[in-house]
């Protein structure tokens, strides 16, 4: 905690920290305290969310044990068949909760989103910064911002009603000819499933990664680029030897932020995966993610009189929280280590 000093307004020289902090300490105490109070609120909210979630999930954690992470069956049990007690936790007969299918679904959809979305986002950012004239770049930037701003329910509906079925008719039959195990000769289905959800997620993470990459590329000093060109490099060679190296770590950070978004997206994925609690048999088959399961199962879970079903959803949410926390921490570490100017993509919204 700080010690607000009572020094008179002026004399103490402003500490010249690089980011100008500590700047206001010592005067403007009201402002100091007001902003500190406000800054504590997000922290308090996070803490409250965790406490509520953990408190809610505790009986489920006790009941499900470690098997929660590896078992494959998610069954509310017979909600009309009476209840019994195990380890002090009331539960309906036959209740068992295994979250592995939805953990796998979460990771798989996010992986597809990254594999597809990352190159597209990087390509878009590179062409936007390096080759587009300012007016065109401004329009292109608008395209990215709009993509970031499309409500997830709208993009989900589009994925469910148009994009998925269209892909299943026109593209997936070609894709399933590719001799890769998970993919080859699998039934392409109706366009609802792992691949469609992954592609829709890819579209949703592109703006995040692209906006950050754009800002990073713009921070590359011109003189360095000119130096590379002066050595006789083509501009793609110059890009790879100068800009690419300059932004490398920052891009990794941006990618991890996109990954965080892909892991936690709810509504669009709930609409496009089919949200079932099953491990996908192939890249085309339906599956579910943790977030989509919470939204699709929350209603029926509330008819479990012991409340264990809802508590198990809370436990799943807690698992997702830990995964995203891990991703965020990694992102922060990478971004911090990267070059200055590796701004988080807040301005672009996500």
């Amino acid at each position: 905690m700080s010690t607000p000093d009572t020094a008179p307004p002026r004399p103490t020289p402003a500490p010249a920290t690089s980011d100008g902090s500590v700047y206001l300490r010592g005067n403007g105490r009201a402002l100091d305290w007001a902003t500190r109070l406000l800054a504590l609120l997000p922290f308090a909210a996070l803490a409250a969310i965790l406490v509520v979630l953990f408190y809610e999930a505790l009986p489920a954690i006790r009941f499900n044990g470690f098997g929660f992470l590896v078992n494959r069956v998610w069954s509310v049990g017979s909600t009309y068949g009476g209840v019994s007690k195990a380890g002090g936790v009331l539960h309906p007969f036959g209740a068992k909760y295994g979250a592995w299918p939805i953990i796998a679904g979460t990771l798989e959809t996010a992986l597809i989103a990254m594999v597809v979305g990352l190159p597209l986002a990087l390509g878009a950012a590179v062409i936007l910064v390096e080759k587009m004239p300012p007016q065109l770049a401004s329009v292109a930037g608008l395209v990215l911002e709009v993509l970031a701003g499309v409500p997830s329910v709208v993009i989900g509906l589009w994925g469910l009603l148009t994009f998925g079925p269209w892909m299943a008719r026109n593209i997936y039959p070609a894709v399933h000819a590719i001799p890769i195990p998970f993919l080859h000769n699998q039934p392409v289905g109706t366009g609802e499933g792992l691949l469609t959800a992954g592609l829709v997620l890819a579209a949703m993470i592109v703006p995040i990664v692209a906006a950050t990459t754009r800002d990073l590329l713009r921070s590359v000093p011109v003189a360095t680029k000119e130096g590379a060109l002066a050595l006789g490099m083509t501009d793609s060679e110059a890009f790879w030897s100068v800009q690419a190296r300059w932004v490398r770590t920052g891009v990794v950070g941006a990618a991890v932020l996109g990954l965080g978004r892909a892991l936690g997206e709810t509504i669009a994925v709930a609409l496009c995966t089919g949200s079932v609690l099953q491990i996908a048999q192939s890249i085309f088959s339906t599956t579910g993610t943790i977030a989509s399961t919470v939204v699709s199962q929350l209603d029926s879970s509330q008819s479990d009189p012991t409340g264990l079903a809802v508590k198990s959803l809370a436990e799943a949410a807690l698992v997702l929280f830990l995964i995203t926390l891990l991703v965020n921490v990694v992102a922060r570490m990478i971004v911090r280590r990267s070059a200055r100017g590796a701004a988080l993509p807040v301005g672009a919204g996500f």
């Binding site: 902090s21 500590v22 300490r25 800054a39 997000p42 996070l46 936690g264 509504i267 997702l320």
Partner: peptide
């Protein structure tokens, strides 16, 4: 306002982690 240090990075981190929580949760 904040002094660089543990409190600031905790609060900043908390804010960023908050943004990563799925909206349904």
């Amino acid at each position: 306002v904040a002094k660089p240090g543990a409190l600031r990075s905790i609060l900043r981190g908390a804010s960023e982690v908050l943004s990563g929580i799925p909206s349904i949760v």
